[in-house]
Design a protein around this nucleic acid. Structure first.
Lengths: 335, 335
DNA sequence: TAAGTATATGTTATCGTTACCATAATGTCA
DNA sequence: TGACATTATGGTAACGATAACATATACTTA
């Protein structure tokens, strides 16, 4: 039972065109007719057919959100921010998830084009191919990338300054007198993780500590048990670290488990800092962590899309997702 | 630059109808023409216009996912399951989030109707009004509810057997000899939480322990700090509990912090069980928790929608989201 | 050979909304 | 009293895909 404008027009004894004027609140409509139409809309429960509108207007009111799966699994917080920001501006968000496979992505991007999204947010740390971007360009779909950048391909990107965040955190640790600072990180296959490892190294260089290979543990994934194993390895070094920086809260949580298993106390026996600030306040004790300021992320993404829509040939822009350091007292001065 | 079937037809020197036959792989098409058309589709980068299809077919290929915000904040895992299941079946998922306000929901539901979703999944623990359901019914939109049920309103519902899960967990605790078993739960304003509290009480009755008001702590929210405060209160009882059941991992995490702050050890000094199994394996020690089996949830939702579409007047059906008990050894026999 | 069927292709009304165009009654100013 | 806005309303051709219908060969089979 689909009510359309024609039904409303009949009910209000007027024409489709006039109903359109009331709905869009433009043109001339007499008070009486307007009231009759409004009454008819309410009575019939008329809801505009979005497909017909999209077909006619070439604008769908939809924003696509393409998630290429990443191990660190924090993406849903970003998706959430995007959905909220889109909704706030009257857009609807369609979310699609791509397993890492690859060619499947092309299909999903075609679906996005098919439903004629007014903008596409890509959340990923693995590659979208140049051909895929070309496809999007052909359909004049504004695109913004989050987490991993594609600036060189002319795509506006919204990135975390992972390098700076880790560097600052490690400098903070060193400032408390620590000299043997370990790093537990994921495999630096992805740009994000490379930046973090690099930030750690830079910090050491900054404060004049020489890098020591044994203090860097790269795990195959971001699981708690990987963190635990990494910390175990660190503890069994001839001279173990007095502080540890983990590039994920899950890894830090594992490190904590390893420490407790050996009867160590936090932070007395080991200073520790996590990353993402998603688990850290739940641990015992709540630990320091680097968090992302997600409030503005959705809005920034929407702004970039809007800007790109208006000026499609503007050079690609990079914006920062800011970080904060949650100090919970788990980095203490070395005795 | 929008390529349509007419463009493909021109390029392949044939008619729109024949292009349609190739696209839908039905009717008769000669080998040569088919090849010409396929070549043209690839060359032009033709992508079907979904809006036009929806308009003509009255099917959008979209599933709506309406999230009415709940405090416990685990909803995104369910959304994720729904998105995956929808995608698996060739559907696209549009997600909308409703703040608890209320009337805003009507607007979102109208949007869903406007884009002509083929089915709507409602994830919420607060109310959708009968009028809103009536609206959906008028547009013949199949609906399935997750987390909170609306069986009495004829809506298929997918529910967690919270009552049984908590009851079983508490019985498990009691079986180890504990008699003073505390409960840390949220305010039972929502059905979900009521069920859990009720499950706890029932378990005590089952094993012949008399309920003791002081051992039940209801917190205003599900934050870690609320859990900590609740546990603090429990510890300051004249005779504190020897075991505690929390209805959220965050609450359990808080309880753990409170225990450590007093120098207690887990599980030697306090047996503990969490809920949701989302944080618990990251804690030190990893604690027992009740988890949800989310694998099948998306599929069940899709099945119910499909069923409802085929038989709109079938009586409302209830299905269970199963739970599991993750035993990590934090419930130990009472000495 | 007539009748029927399998193969192959093209024409066009329809879905619901929009926006441009036409029509016409009234009001206003030189 | 024309000329021209202003107000008010209605008709209809797109948008792109679909499927019903029309048409026309070639191939069987009675």
């Amino acid at each position: 039972m689909n009510i359309k404008m024609a039904d409303v027009a009949r009910e209000a004894q007027t024409s489709i065109a006039t109903v359109g004027r009331v709905i869009h609140n433009n043109g001339y409509v007499s008070k009486e007719v307007r009231e009759r139409i409004e009454k008819a809309i309410a009575a019939l429960g008329y809801v505009p057919n979005q497909s017909a509108r999209t077909l006619k207007n070439n604008r769908s009111g939809m924003i696509g959100c393409l998630v290429v799966e990443s191990d660190n699994g924090q993406y849903y917080r970003i998706v959430d921010a995007v959905i909220r920001a889109a909704q706030m501006r009257g857009f609807t968000c369609v979310t699609m998830e791509a397993p890492q496979s690859g060619d499947n992505q092309t299909q999903l991007i075609q679906s996005m084009i098919g439903i004629h999204v007014d903008g596409l947010v890509i959340i990923s740390n693995i590659g979208i191919t140049p051909e895929q971007f070309a496809l999007l360009k052909r359909f004049e779909t504004p695109v913004v990338a989050i987490e991993r950048g594609y600036l060189e391909q002319g795509i506006d990107s919204l990135l975390v300054r992972d390098f700076d965040a880790v560097r600052d955190a490690v400098i903070h640790i060193a400032a408390k007198g620590h000299r043997r600072i370990a790093l537990i990180a994921g495999e630096p296959n992805f740009d994000v993780e490379k930046q973090r490892v690099h930030g750690y190294c830079q910090a050491l260089a900054d404060v004049g500590i020489s890098e020591e290979e044994g203090l860097i543990r790269l795990t195959p994934d971001y699981t708690v048990s990987s963190g635990r194993k990494a910390m175990d390895k660190l503890f069994s070094l001839p001279s173990p670290p007095t502080a540890v920086m983990a590039t994920a809260d899950t890894l830090a949580a594992g490190a904590l488990q390893a420490a407790y298993a050996r009867g160590f106390r936090i932070p007395e026996d080991l200073s520790i800092v996590g990353y993402d600030d998603v688990l850290s306040q739940s641990l015992s004790p709540a630990i320091d962590s680097v968090g992302l300021v997600l409030e503005g992320v959705g809005d920034m993404a929407m702004e970039l899309l809007e800007q790109r829509r208006k000026t499609p040939d503007h050079p690609a822009e990079r914006r920062d997702i800011h970080t904060y350091y949650a100090d919970r007292g788990t980095v203490i001065p070395l005795l």
